[in-house]
């Protein structure tokens, strides 16, 4: 037990929470935007995975990490635009469309990797680039705070900014107001001249953009290469985070950090002599527990309301 606390109460552990939360937070923000427009984007997982590979490939072939990042972002937006086309225009069920995207991404990334490199597991033969870590002057030297807050990956900082940005977008801008109106009462939105479908397109593409940043972080920050199915359910955890966060930017961000904490804990506990299979269930058990507590409180509130 002592050892456990030794691991938890370190700046390294706190540092790792931010790092591990990054992809979850990005994807959860993506889930948030599309959910508020009334569309559950089940395809987040697939979008992340596709972007992770796109980033690696483009950075390897151009030799530029930035080009890789931009490629990943474009790829993510493109996939969600396709999903939007299928669901909004051709009236596919969004759940089926999302599942198709996920299945396609899982197999398609491996296939593409194999065609280009002859490998089926990882992109280790490619000389792909990583996005840098940032060291913040002055703060870097503050004891305790410095080692946690400084030296994080550039996309980790961006994820925090993105959370603030999404908060601003949803609550302060005309687009955000319209997204929320479309999600809550599309008929009302339509009756005042808002083009519902157009708003949903925008929301889905933005959702894809955020998920793609999470994917890019996975292969160009968290790791320095692409491995098959490397997102490992983060897209799904993001959906849980959004729902537990009650569809608000603040709630979603906080819940993402809770899940990030669980993931970081699982990573840290691997230093102890606990079976790794057991440890790797921690984030998922946290998800289940979180949802149970959330729905219990909701039910109690409903009972009180009567």
């Amino acid at each position: 037990m002592d050892k456990f606390f030794e691991i938890i109460f370190t700046t390294d552990f706190a540092f790792s929470i931010f790092r591990v939360t990054t992809p979850i937070l990005f994807a959860a923000l993506g889930a948030l935007i599309s959910n508020r427009a009334g569309i559950v984007n089940i395809g987040l997982e697939g979008i992340m995975l596709t972007s992770a590979l796109t980033g690696v490939l483009i950075s390897a072939y151009t030799g530029s990490a930035l080009a890789g990042l931009l490629g990943a972002m474009l790829g993510g937006m493109l996939i969600s635009a396709i999903l939007a086309l299928f669901t909004l225009e051709l009236k596919t069920d969004i759940i089926l469309g999302g599942i198709a995207i996920n299945a396609f991404a899982s197999g398609g990334t491996v296939f593409l990797l194999y065609v280009l490199t002859g490998e089926k597991g990882t992109s280790s033969t490619l000389a792909s680039k990583m996005l840098p870590d940032l060291h913040i002057p002055l703060i870097e030297r503050v004891p305790y705070l410095g080692p946690i807050v400084s030296g994080q990956h550039v996309l980790t900082y961006l994820s925090i900014l993105a959370a603030l940005g999404v908060y601003f977008l949803l609550n302060r801008t005309p687009l955000g107001l319209r997204i929320r109106a479309v999600g809550e009462n599309p008929k009302a939105a339509q009756s005042v001249g808002i083009r519902v479908k157009q708003i949903q397109y925008i929301a889905l593409v933005l959702s894809g953009l955020f998920a793609s940043l999470g994917g890019a972080f996975m292969s160009m920050g968290y790791l320095s290469l692409f491995t098959r199915d490397m997102t490992a359910g983060r897209g799904w955890i993001a959906l849980a985070a959004e729902s537990m966060g009650r569809g608000t930017a603040v709630g979603t961000t906080l819940t993402s950090f809770l899940f990030g904490f669980a993931q970081a804990l699982a990573n840290a506990l691997q230093l102890l002599k606990i079976p790794s299979e057991l440890i790797s269930t921690v984030p998922y058990i946290t998800t289940v527990l979180g949802l149970v507590i959330y729905s219990y409180r909701q039910a109690r509130k409903l009972r009180k309301g009567r």
């Binding site: 005309p174 929320r180 009462n185 009302a188 001249g193």
Partner: peptide
């Protein structure tokens, strides 16, 4: 004025009023 109101329940009266024709200050409503 429809029999079934075309309003967004969680919005304020003012937000419902200006939805789709929002007054702006910079990029914000």
């Amino acid at each position: 004025v429809h029999q079934h109101f075309m309003l967004v329940p969680s919005f304020t009266v003012a937000e419902n009023m200006i939805l789709g024709m929002e007054p702006r200050k910079g990029v914000a409503v």
